[in-house]
Amino acid sequence: MTDTLTLTDHDAIRDWAAARAGQPAMSDAAPALQDAQTVLRIVFGQHAYQDTDTGPDRPDGVTIIEWDDWFRIFDERGLALVVADEPPGSRSEWHELVRRG
């Protein structure tokens, strides 16, 4: 398995996402889950380039949001972003949001 890095610093997370053209987003949890919360995500590719000037875009239930809003939820929930510790020149989009600690 590839080594991983755990990121909690907002600038480091924003830099990691920017290097991969990622955007902060959220999506609704599965309706079957009781007490379900909105799920934070970082989206890439076409999802990251949705035109949000004309209203909320929700392809596949995903809404692009501002980094400030994303980080507010990220900190409130005590989350960390786990990413692959890659060699220089690699740009894997693999990531996972986990609880800190």
Rank of each mutant, 00 (worst) to 15 (best):
G61L: 09
V39E: 10
A18W: 05
R41A: 12
D57K: 14
I42T: 02
W67L: 04
I73K: 06
F74K: 04
I65H: 04
A17S: 04
A48P: 09
P56E: 13
S27C: 15
L33S: 08
P31W: 11
A36E: 10
T8H: 06
G55V: 08
G45V: 09
W70N: 02
T8I: 09
F44A: 01
P56A: 12
Q50A: 12
E66S: 12
F44L: 04
A12L: 03
V39I: 14
G22T: 03
I65A: 06
A25D: 06
H47G: 01
R58D: 07
T63P: 00
L40K: 00
D11A: 15
Q46A: 14
A18R: 08
W70T: 01
D69A: 12
P24D: 06
S27E: 15
A32Q: 09
G61N: 14
A18P: 00
M26Q: 14
G45M: 09
D15I: 01
E76S: 11
A12M: 02
I13S: 01
D68N: 07
R20E: 03
Q34S: 09
G22F: 11
F44S: 00
R41P: 00
Q46T: 13
T6K: 10
E66P: 08
A25G: 09
D60Q: 12
A21T: 12
R58H: 07
